[in-house]
């Protein structure tokens, strides 16, 4: 509790207001007697769909998970070789072909002749 300030401390917590005698006892009785009649609606009974809905949703979720697992399992089994693989027919070009290509494109006549003369047996 906070400290009261000096003057508030002096006055205290009494407010000086009062009520007629037996006010609260009388008030309760009069108040309750004056309450209007009213219909309090009974809480609604849940329909069959509302009751089974959580189970249907859960079943749908499991079915979805099962389908996904089935689909992914299928994909992985294909990757493991259960279906015929496409034959890869990559073949390395022979060394001479590469050399010929290189010579054709990058070696001019003069250099070619020079090579012939320096490397050849003539």
């Amino acid at each position: 509790m906070e400290k009261k300030t000096p003057l508030l401390d002096e006055i205290g917590r009494k407010h000086g207001m009062k009520v007629p005698e037996d006010y609260f006892a009388d008030f309760t009785e009069k108040m309750v007697d004056s309450l209007p009649e009213r219909e309090i609606p009974l809480p609604e009974q849940p329909t069959l769909w509302l009751r089974v809905r959580p189970w249907v949703y859960m079943a749908a979720m499991f079915a979805g998970v099962w389908l996904m697992m089935k689909m992914f399992t299928g994909i992985f089994s294909v990757e493991k070789g259960e279906t015929p693989q496409v034959e890869m027919t990559a073949s390395a070009p022979e060394e001479s072909t590469v050399e010929d290509e290189w010579i054709a494109h990058y070696v001019d006549d003069y250099t070619a002749y020079e090579m012939l003369y320096t490397e050849g047996d003539y």
Partner: peptide, 15 residues
């Protein structure tokens, strides 16, 4: 004007 207030001067000042 309220007959149901019988506070002293300090209580009135507080209000």
């Amino acid at each position: 004007s309220d007959e149901f207030f019988d506070g002293d001067r300090a209580q009135r000042l507080l209000q």
